[in-house]
Design a protein around this nucleic acid. Structure first.
Lengths: 174, 174
DNA sequence: ACTGCCGGTCTGTTCACCGGACCATGGTCG
DNA sequence: CGACCATGGTCCGGTGAACAGACCGGCAGT
């Protein structure tokens, strides 16, 4: 979003939430974590974000309890915490709004309920089951709106195949 | 949020949405519009935002089709457009996350379905009706978590009484 | 020992936000 | 009719964040 931390004095919890996820890049970073990205370099390739800012955001998100940082195979690995996974409705509703109100009519990505294969509606509900599946029960796949602006990096290519959210994204070499 | 416009190259519509509502202050301004605030000075009193930035945000939101600007009684009046009202799930889910993950356990504000009086759940559903009411069908009232940080301005005082979203907030003189 | 990858840090420039002064319009009151 | 004041801005100098790009330390492979 866009702050420098400091919506002082605002009693409203919206302001507190924005202090955590309101800075520039933060929600795009979190989206990538839902998609299964877990490493520094993959985020950098996908987002074209400055290294310094990415470092600052990851450190901040870890400090705020949204991510954990562990080490795997000698490299840092970042994972969403429970609080981080609870941000899914925020990411989903913003992306949906963007599709419907600033983009084309066709969605760039479609989410379906893994249990039954039905696509979820604009509010995230599974029409077949009547539930609102959490991100762990969703599968993403590219939508009908082939986006001419689509990026070409390892992460973007990996997302051309259907992928279950929160599971590690397998990035093809080269 | 926190950008200066320019998540260039990002095909994802989340990035497009963030170009519109991702800058600092924007979502807090929109929250106030849902609460029924419609005028420059009231926003300024409630948010402690610089005049220049508030002007820039309002102009930007009008340009992006989220607000309309009309004149009433010789003063500008800003109203949410259909696209603006469609942002309710974003504002709601962020505020809810803030309550549950960075604040106390008790909500600062509670939303209930105007048709039946039932409080909506964490995903915005009315448990009695089984629907997800839009903002026009919701009533806000202060929650049980009396917030010690609560502000004291005309807008905050007006919100101490239950109020239907999107209807004009009556601001007591002085 | 050399090379390359990964995950950073450091630096200088640009740009947005901040607080506060200033200003134009329109209504009110004596 | 003139003074005053509320509203809704604009303008300006200072500060802090983000950007692009250079640099660097640890580790793996060969």
């Amino acid at each position: 979003m866009a702050l420098g931390t400091g919506y002082d004095q605002q009693g409203c919890y919206l302001a507190r939430a924005l202090e955590v996820v309101g800075e520039r890049w933060t929600l795009l970073i979190l989206r990538d974590f839902f998609f299964g990205v877990r490493r520094f370099t993959d985020l950098r390739d996908h987002l074209d974000i400055s290294r310094a800012v990415l470092t600052a955001r990851l450190d901040g998100l870890v400090a705020d309890g949204v991510l954990t940082r562990t080490t795997l195979d000698g490299h840092p690995e970042y994972l969403l915490t429970e609080a981080g996974r609870a941000l899914w409705p925020v990411v989903f509703s913003l992306a949906r709004w963007g599709e419907q109100h600033v983009g084309a009519r066709h969605p760039a990505r479609v989410f379906s309920h893994a249990d039954c294969g039905t696509d979820v509606d604009a509010l995230g509900r599974c029409p077949a089951c009547g539930t609102v599946p959490g991100p762990e029960d969703l599968v993403v796949r590219p939508g009908t709106g082939a986006n001419p602006m689509r990026r070409d990096d390892r992460v973007a290519r990996a997302l051309e195949r259907p992928h279950r959210l929160l599971t590690r994204l397998e990035l093809a070499a080269v």
